[in-house]
Design a binder for these strands. Structure first.
Lengths: 215, 215
DNA sequence: AGCGACTATAGGGTTTTCCCTAAATTTATA
DNA sequence: TATAAATTTAGGGAAAACCCTATAGTCGCT
């Protein structure tokens, strides 16, 4: 059973979403929140699998902040952004804040249920419309946004840095060893995190070992 | 060939050390430094395996700082502390600053050569006298100072935290998940680092995986 | 009742990591 | 020779990790 929290300050809309979901056997709306504060409070008290979050809640900035807050503090809880806006820059900002899905408010019942199930299974949900918007908007689209399971090709330097990180060296120590600046090392470390699609060195090491880059 | 740098402001002593070492086939004194500055400069230009460091160089604080500097920036370079003092507190301070060996200035040739070779092979060198001084001085002696290769026994909580770190969670996220404070999680993380004898989470993950605590 | 291991918490501080943006140089390659 | 990929450096800023000391409650064992 997927536990869903609806965060929207429009009563009518909450009702609508809930009725759409009511048909699904494995999804249940367990919480309805009309303010940012109540969302934070609820998450602190109850385990929630998916949050359907109106990004204009009540203002766009509030929604983005709340989205960031949720994904930072409760990584198990997935956020699907709901909004009436369909511009690329907003979608990107939302994704950057950790949302796993993005739906326009004129979405269908099928799409809504599918999005909930998809994000709950650790995947991202973006329909064709959203994907199209993202793709047709310059080169800023992350190389490895999907990032799961694919083996990144490392540059020679990146491999070196990866090996040194796995030896427990700090950035400064690596810099001394490679005879480059700390900033250069930082750059390679950052590239590694991006290529492997991980948030920190701990998971980088684990992932790299599993993928046989180390050992 | 083990490259040795002697750091001492007493000319006579440098000469003495050098003549003692001259007999060894696999050890070579490549640098002699009479000031802190020259040590730093040399290390930046030349690869050194072992530094024989007079802790009173010229004052105790200077030697300790230099020792810390070397071990922090050049972890491959091992430091053997040389001094005339034999009090426990100083020994501990030196070890805390990263020295891998501690010799009194009335040491023998055999001991000197053995100390150089031992620390160069990633091990620590403390003779019976030093060990005795450390043991007979209260409970402050670290539980796992040696730490290499032995499998630590983890408490239930430590195991949990280790697993969560390996999943890439931050301290705050773990705290939320375990319903405890961030400080509590920090404590367990710190215990893990100590028990495994590693300096950071990157090496913690690698070591824990190799020892089959993870996966 | 006392001891030790485990757990949790706190305050304060330093270092390191991580993120963002930006730009110059080299090297390979189409 | 453009173009792209790789490497290097930089500055600033926010978050996280790391280190230290100190207290305190719980539990099991002696």
């Amino acid at each position: 059973m997927i536990r869903v929290l609806i965060a929207d300050d429009h009563n009518v809309f909450v009702e609508g979403i809930e009725s759409l979901i009511s048909g699904a056997p494995d999804i249940k709306v367990t919480e309805r929140c009309y303010t940012v504060e109540s969302v934070i409070e609820r998450l602190n008290q109850t385990a929630i699998d998916v949050v359907l979050l109106d990004i204009s809640f009540p203002q766009i900035e509030d929604g983005l902040n709340l989205c960031e807050h949720i994904t930072r503090l409760y990584p198990k809880t997935k956020v699907v952004a709901l909004t009436m806006h369909d511009d690329a820059s907003l979608i990107k900002r939302v994704v950057k804040k950790g949302a796993r899905g993005y739906l326009l408010k004129n979405t269908t019942k099928v799409e809504l249920l599918q999005a909930i199930q998809t994000v709950h299974h650790e995947k991202q949900y973006f329909n064709d419309t959203i994907t199209h918007i993202l793709l047709n908007d310059g080169p800023k689209t992350r190389k490895s946004t999907a990032g799961a399971g694919i083996k990144p090709n490392l540059t020679p330097r990146e491999s070196e840095v990866l090996t040194l990180i796995a030896q427990g060296l700090t950035t400064q120590q690596m810099a001394n060893q490679l005879f480059v600046s700390a900033k250069a090392v930082e750059f390679h470390r950052s590239s590694l995190l991006m290529k492997f699609g991980v948030p920190n060195t701990a998971l980088l090491i684990k992932t790299a070992m599993e993928m046989q880059y180390i050992d």
